[in-house]
Amino acid sequence: METLLNDFSPGLFIVQTILLLGLIFLLVKVAWKPILTSLNEREEGIHGALEAAEKARAEMQNLQADNEKLLKDARAEREAMLKEAREIKDKMITDSKEQAKVEGDKMLKQAQAAIESEKKAAVADIKNQVAELSIEIAEKVLKEQLANKDQQLKLVESMLGDVKLN
């Protein structure tokens, strides 16, 4: 302890105090302040840049998600449209089929009716013509027969013989 106190130099202490004080003030002024300020600025810059990058990434992700959603929507829409079209097509086909069938039936019926009526007409015509022919024949026959009295009687008789009394 005694040697230590003996070694302690007050002069050196004072000189060191003054020099250190000067050194601290000078260094704070010329070095530490600008260094720490620019370090802080740089760190804030890096921080900001990182944040911006993160933001951009998030935005990008959002965009991508949006795109995907749009794509999905479009695909769904296309699908729906296709489905609709297919349905319409099917419906049209069935509709037209039915219509055709109905029409066909109708036409068939009409045709049948026409045929029927034609047939009827034809039959009637034939009947008429047959009647007329019969009458004509009958007339001719009658004319011929009636020219001769005997024959008239014979005819009547034969006719009467034909007619069965039932």
Binding site: V15, L23, L26, A31
Partner: peptide, 29 residues
């Protein structure tokens, strides 16, 4: 004793060294 002893010489040397090194670092920024 306010002499420029060996220690004071060392302090001055280091002080100047630090001033030079760190002020040049500050200037770089």
């Amino acid at each position: 004793d306010f002499s420029i002893t060996k220690s004071v010489f060392g302090i001055l040397l280091v002080g100047l060294l630090m001033l030079w090194a760190f002020s040049s670092l500050a200037k770089q920024y």
